[in-house]
Design a protein around this nucleic acid. Structure first.
Length: 624
RNA sequence: GGGCCCGUGGCCUAGCCAGGAUAAGGCGGCGGCCUCCUAAGCCGCAGAUCCCCGGUUCGAAUCCGGGCGGGCCCGCCA
């Protein structure tokens, strides 16, 4: 059982001592016990009592009602009421809880229901760069967490294969003479992004003819029966296939790939359009700069109303991106009558991925509890327009969440490596100008660093083994590095900084887990059995480890509620630190009468840490 | 002009949503620890006007107001 039981016991004791609505939280330091309450402090203020005296009186009364996991209660200045555990029982309860069933220890009572998560959604004209990786890592971590928490999760990757960027890419093949096959050894997505797309944009700057040709290409692409359209679909799929290799390498998995070109013909927009008209959410502008357009009426919105109404259908009859996103949101919410059609894309480790397809089988989602769309903060406004439009139609706007995160920039130093001179401290990445670091190149460099480090430490390992471990280290370091910064803070990516494997990094978690595994292995050889029961008084390090394990369920509950996945990183890191300190001072093998209990503690640590690492997508290793 | 995000030791980053007890960790610097379960680790030292001003409170890095600085958004682009 987690620390929740100690909290409940403390609350009950306080209630019996006359505190009406006791608030009890874990302490910051064991010097103050395991759990503490400031309710007495608040009560004293309300009633004008001396806080410390009141706390002492309450503590006296509460003491008689202790039992179970708590052994003592003491008042502390200026009016805290601190609860001290019976360490024997407390540790036994925690360790037993973890060893019996770590899943229920961590995730029990977190609710259920279906959750739809859209993430990645990179235009299929280039390879993923580190900015895209932030989206992938955040979305994938949320999906992992929700799955562990018992939700039925569906992950969607929205593939915009019909936008202007696609036309620009096509232009390179159709007009600039680029071969459809990349040079030997080059990936197709990198070829398209690094060479074709960048070249088109470079020429467009100096040659006005290019823009004329781009329009022509874009126009031709609208004819779905054309050879050109088929070529475009084909290229998008080839790029997508490569992009997904990178996503898979990062550990991300998808249930549905939805192509915009399929959404366009599905009739989804027609349905949304009708419903928007019926509900009065949109109107046909007949004067002003937007005359001839269907626009969303934002006049009732507290903030958006200040910026003018949003065009959804242009005067030439075509839809805007926001319009299509409203239609798709309707589908994700399971609120559309229109169905999208899907066909099998691939099966990986038993997980089936479908892709939208005109000749597929029609599918609709049952209305999920929650739809999370992971999109960077620059799209806050359009996302709010989507949400507002949904609310005007009267469908689950409260179930529609834009998970926003700040973009990834490049450090001055790293940008200059790409030939971009920075004015400030950081520079924005640009696909058009080739100013970006690709996920694959960063991962490959990380692997090289990890190979060097690993082969230096384990000279007896085979090349294959070193490489395999190095790959896992690289993935762990990369995901950790991306996830450790809070979503509403910019990341200033620096390639040299990102190649570090010491300190506050992914390998720190992997290393501490390996240490734990090695102890378990050795103990098994010798024949030591883990036990949840201490053999005597606990050391400080043991108490801290028990305590840290006991609060992990609270952290997880908090993150499931708030989606602030950054806290999971902090929790995993803190847990590893506390374990490493335990490791230094508490020998297990050769721990004498303490061996069994310590082994139980190590086993508990490992099970909990593995769960956290799996959620974060930091690979768990047997050795490193 | 309106809106959103950020501002914590030299550098990077927690803590802020739910105000409490010495502001935590990493990098970098200095000094220690491997006949003992993996030193990608651990311990110690130095280093902070928690951007500024005001307010609320017994108590503010945290909440509120006003500034300043940096980033972003406000297209018949996506």
């Amino acid at each position: 059982m987690s620390i929740r039981r100690a909290i409940e016991e403390a609350k009950e004791a306080l209630r019996r001592a006359g505190v009406r609505e006791p608030k009890v939280v874990p302490t910051k330091s064991l010097a103050f016990g395991v759990v503490t309450s400031t309710s007495v402090l608040e009560e004293a203020r309300e009633r004008g009592l001396d806080a410390l005296a009141h706390a002492e009186a309450v503590s006296e009364r509460a003491r008689g009602h202790l039992g179970g996991l708590l052994a003592d209660v003491r008042a502390a200045t200026p009016g805290y009421v601190n609860f001290f555990p019976d360490w024997w029982r407390f540790s036994e309860s925690v360790i037993r809880g973890v060893l019996e069933d770590v899943r229920s220890f961590l995730y029990e009572g977190l609710g259920e229901g279906e959750v739809v998560i859209e993430h990645t959604s990179v235009n299929p004209n280039k390879a993923l760069h580190v900015g895209h990786a932030r989206n992938v890592c955040i979305g994938d971590t949320i999906s992992r967490l929700m799955t562990k928490a018992g939700r039925n999760v569906r992950v969607i990757n929205y593939v915009d294969d019909s936008g202007a960027q696609m036309a620009e890419l096509l232009l390179g093949f159709a007009e600039l003479g680029f071969d459809l096959n990349p040079p030997m050894g080059m990936r197709f997505d990198e070829y398209c992004g690094d060479m074709v797309y960048v070249e088109v944009n470079r020429r467009a700057k100096v040659d006005p003819e290019i823009e004329v040709k781009r329009r022509k290409v874009a126009k031709e692409l609208e004819d779905r029966g054309s050879e050109f359209f088929r070529l475009s679909r084909d290229i998008a799929l080839r790029v997508l296939r490569d992009q997904l290799r990178t996503c898979h390498r990062l550990g991300a998995r998808y249930d549905m790939l939805v192509r915009e070109s399929d959404v366009v013909v599905s009739g989804l927009w027609d349905e949304a359009f009708t419903r928007l008209k019926v509900s009065g959410a949109i109107y046909l502008a007949n004067r002003g700069s937007k005359a001839g357009c269907w626009v969303a009426d934002l006049s009732g919105h507290p903030v958006l109303s200040k910026e003018g109404d949003e065009v959804l259908v242009k005067s030439d009859g075509s839809t805007t991106y926001v319009a299509r996103d409203i239609a798709f949101a309707l589908w994700k919410l399971g609120e559309s009558r229109t169905e999208l059609r899907f066909t099998l894309w691939e099966v990986q480790n038993g997980r089936i991925t479908y892709i939208s397809s005109e000749d597929g089988i029609p599918a609709r989602l049952g209305p999920p509890r929650l739809v999370i769309t992971v999109v960077d903060s620059r799209q806050k406004r359009p996302q709010e327009v989507v949400r507002y439009a949904l609310s005007r139609i009267g469908v689950g706007a409260d179930r529609y969440v834009h998970y926003s995160y700040e973009p990834v920039l490049l450090s001055k130093r790293s940008a200059s490596m790409l030939g971009a001179e920075a004015e400030g401290e950081a520079v924005q990445m640009s696909g058009r100008e080739g100013i970006y670091f690709k996920v694959e190149e960063v991962l490959n460099e990380l692997v090289e660093v990890a190979v060097r480090e690993t082969s230096a430490r384990r000279p007896e390992w085979s090349k294959e083994k070193v490489r395999e471990i190095a790959e896992a280290i690289a993935i762990g370091a990369f995901r950790y590095g991306v996830l450790k910064v809070d979503s509403d803070r910019q990341i200033v990516f620096d390639i040299e900084e990102s190649l570090k494997l010491e300190g506050d990094t992914g390998p720190y978690l992997q290393y501490s887990a390996v240490r734990a595994k090695k102890i378990l292995l050795k103990a098994e050889e010798i024949g030591i059995e883990p036990s949840p029961t201490p053999s005597g008084d606990l050391t400080d390090a043991e108490m801290r480890l028990v305590r840290e394990i006991s609060i992990v369920p609270l952290t997880i509950e908090d993150v499931v509620r708030t989606l602030r996945i950054r806290s999971l990183v902090t929790q995993a890191r803190t847990l590893a630190t506390v374990f490493n300190e335990f490791y230094e001072s508490c020998p297990v093998i050769g721990g004498g009468s303490n061996a069994s209990f310590r082994l139980g503690l190590v086993a508990s640590y490992l099970r909990v840490q593995e769960e956290l690492m799996e959620t974060l997508g930091v690979p768990v290793l047997d050795e490193l």
